[in-house]
């Protein structure tokens, strides 16, 4: 099964493989959430939502409902 960003565990790193541009705001793409970029889960709030991520060097938080539209491959951990 294809992994999404919502499946990533704390401390794991992944590479973004695809983003569904209809579901993802342009702003998130502009902040570096693009195919090929490295992503790491820094911290999760209670109930694992929202997620505090390091995408391509930018630290940001998004909700799980957005994260499921970002496909990744786990690269370590």
């Amino acid at each position: 099964m294809q992994l999404t960003l919502a499946d990533i565990k704390r401390g794991q790193q992944g590479i973004i493989t695809d983003v569904s541009s209809i579901h993802i705001p342009l702003k998130l793409l502009e902040m570096g959430c693009l195919p090929g970029n490295l992503v790491e889960l820094v911290q999760v709030a209670p109930f694992a939502d929202p997620m505090y991520l390091n995408i391509n060097g930018t630290h940001l938080a998004i909700r799980k409902e957005t994260a499921i539209h970002i496909l990744i491959e786990i690269s370590n951990g």
């Binding site: 902040m31 505090y52 630290h59 938080a61 998004i62």
Partner: peptide, 10 residues
Amino acid sequence: KTFFVVEMPN
């Protein structure tokens, strides 16, 4: 649509 993006600055 609910989007939520917040930057976590240093």
